[in-house]
């Protein structure tokens, strides 16, 4: 709807600079190459979290994103390893397959509200894990390992994406790929929320009866949103599998699904970029508390509870104040 203000443009510019220039330079100076892996993980988890945030946007608590990340990881791995398909084709295919599963699951369960919907999604991750253990194509508990690195893509001989296996610094390549995906995801999310679909979501979130009285097909929009949400989950999961070069039934667990949800709470449900910040803070917060040993989880949980108690609108509400940009 509205175009970006100049202040927002500066913000986006600074963000892009930090991600694509400042971080690589800092890593080179400090020699902390492990940060690439950490930040790549954050970017991919933030993509999955964006999906969870979107289901919050239609008033549903989604604790099942791990299921769709796992589905995406398997679909991509199977296509690449068994089908010989390029990773870059398998990536959208993974997202679409996750979306398809979401449509089939969503039809019966999206009618549920509140805690009932949340409880069912909580089970989904476990169901997908068990399915992966049982199916022949997913290789049971052994999972799928030795997934080849993404191959290059060129159109009419012009290289669009380089061959990852031929690269010296695959870490940097994955970092860039993950960040680009994340930025595309959040740009799409921002557009969506500020377009008519977003307005209809808001109307449903605030009052489903009134929304249907003005002609909003709420069950259709719920399905569309849940499918998009799961598409993001599938994409994030597929990319993760490719970086780890392996997928196991335990690659994404219930705890991951819970974390995706917490990322959204922590960052702020009212802000499109909330889940991105939430993912970053939660991921690093957990690592920073590593020194505490067996008290790590306890302290971590207490801090989380405190943040959610005292900042119910998330971390971004600190900076943007009340009624900040959506």
């Amino acid at each position: 709807m509205k175009n970006l203000t100049s202040k927002q443009l500066v913000g986006v510019g600074l963000f892009l600079f930090a991600v694509f220039v400042a971080v690589p330079v800092l890593i080179r100076i400090t020699g902390r190459w492990d940060f690439y892996f950490t930040l790549t993980s954050v970017a991919l988890l933030a993509i999955a979290s964006a999906g969870v945030w979107l289901t919050f946007y239609i008033g549903r608590i989604n604790i099942g994103q791990g299921a769709f990340a796992l589905i995406g990881a398997y679909v991509s791995a199977i296509l690449v390893v068994k089908g010989g398909v390029s990773f870059w084709i398998s990536l959208p295919a993974a997202g679409l397959f996750a979306a398809l599963v979401a449509i089939l699951i969503g039809l019966p369960i999206l009618r549920l509200r509140g805690v009932y919907f949340a409880m069912i999604t909580l089970v989904l991750t476990q169901v997908v894990t068990l399915t992966a253990l049982a199916l022949p194509i997913t290789n049971g508990a052994k999972g799928i390992s030795s997934i080849p690195l993404p191959s290059g893509i060129s159109i009419f001989g012009v290289p669009i994406i380089p061959d990852f296996a031929a690269m010296e610094n695959t870490k940097l390549a994955f970092y860039y790929a993950a960040c680009i995906l994340m930025i595309l995801t959040y740009a799409a999310l921002y557009r969506l929320v500020n377009s008519r679909l977003g307005h209809l979501c808001r109307s449903m979130q605030q009052n489903e009866e009134l929304a249907s009285s003005i002609g909003v097909n709420i069950s259709y929009i719920r399905i569309v949103i849940f499918a998009i949400s799961s598409f993001f989950g599938g994409i994030g999961g597929a990319m993760f599998g490719s970086i780890a070069q392996s997928v196991y039934p335990s690659s994404f667990q219930v705890a991951d699904s819970v974390n995706f949800m917490l990322n959204c709470f922590l960052g702020g449900l009212g802000y499109v970029f909330g889940p991105m910040l939430g993912t970053l803070v939660l991921y690093f917060g957990w690592d920073l508390l590593f020194e505490l040993g067996k008290y790590q989880l306890l302290v971590y949980s207490l801090i989380l509870i405190a943040v959610i108690r005292f900042l119910p609108n998330g971390l971004l509400s600190l900076r943007l104040g009340k009624g900040g940009p959506k």
Binding site: R202, S203, Q206, N207, E209, L210, S213, I214, G215
Partner: peptide, 14 residues
């Protein structure tokens, strides 16, 4: 054919 509501029914944050 569009109805309104007897109870207060609004989009409260709009």
């Amino acid at each position: 054919v569009v109805r309104t509501f007897q109870e207060t029914t609004i989009f409260k944050s709009m």
